[in-house]
Design a protein around this nucleic acid. Sequence first.
DNA 1: CAGGTAATTAGAATTATTCTAAAATAAGTC
DNA 2: GACTTATTTTAGAATAATTCTAATTACCTG
Lengths: 141, 141
Amino acid sequence: MAETHTHKPEPVADVLADHGVRPTSQRETVYRSLLQQRDHPTADEVFARVRENAPTISLATVYNCLDVLVQHKLVKAVNFERGPTQYCANLAPHAHFHDEAGGTLDIDMPPEMITQLLGLLPENFDVKHIEVNFHGRTPSA
Amino acid sequence: MAETHTHKPEPVADVLADHGVRPTSQRETVYRSLLQQRDHPTADEVFARVRENAPTISLATVYNCLDVLVQHKLVKAVNFERGPTQYCANLAPHAHFHDEAGGTLDIDMPPEMITQLLGLLPENFDVKHIEVNFHGRTPSA
DNA sequence: CAGGTAATTAGAATTATTCTAAAATAAGTC
DNA sequence: GACTTATTTTAGAATAATTCTAATTACCTG
Ligand SMILES: [Mn+2]
Ligand SMILES: [Mn+2]
Ligand SMILES: [Zn+2]
Ligand SMILES: [Zn+2]
């Protein structure tokens, strides 16, 4: 068999609890949806998706759940040029490529790039967060 | 005398014309305001500022002028976390530091940093624009 | 000056998001 | 398990930045 590191997948409810989030069914559904489909959906898109499994969930609740997940750092909020906020379950440091044709891609950011970027700032600045966005076109062919 | 390169400051109207923008009094006023006060004002703030000189200008016109200036690359639009768009007359490539205490600072970006960032992308991606935002605190003392 | 095009304006409309207040759910206590 | 309290969910109203609409004004060219 090929697998070297096998983590038995921790149940979503436990992940939430471990991050101090009370695992309600709505939160689990929203989080699961982001883990499963790793494009960068907007709140509306998440709402549409989770409605399949949780037909009675409200849009306000989707916003609430997303906010809680972002607050507790289980999910990242991605903004680009006044578009609706998109949500991302990729916790590794990464940049985003926004394709003019639509769609947002994760671009891996090696630690040395982060270091270099921080080097642009005066010594004593306290940085909480770096955000790198590319905008352009992916090859059409 | 110290000055080595002295450009006699080109009249704002000419700069606009040179960039294919018809120099109306409103556009001149808006652009001049951004050149003079180089913080990163929002459309509302620009509106408040230009009202001193052009008391009859409308907010819609301020938005129109800012859009035209951005389209013709005389001004950059800066977005951060769903806040109102801010406008920047600094045309040199630079990142932005968003202070939690309020205020946005320009952070110079040397060409080699741009090159490095572009190196993160697959070869054939066509990049129109890169955006780097820092978020944190500047030293309080 | 006339006619045509482009810009400005006030106000209505839009959109994503947040707020409000009530109902439902969960948790903690005897 | 009923009682109490805190948290979450919900529908709908409210907000805020921006864009749109349609009418007016300014500019330019012949
Ligand atoms: Mn999307
Ligand atoms: Mn500001
Ligand atoms: Zn991402
Ligand atoms: Zn700037």
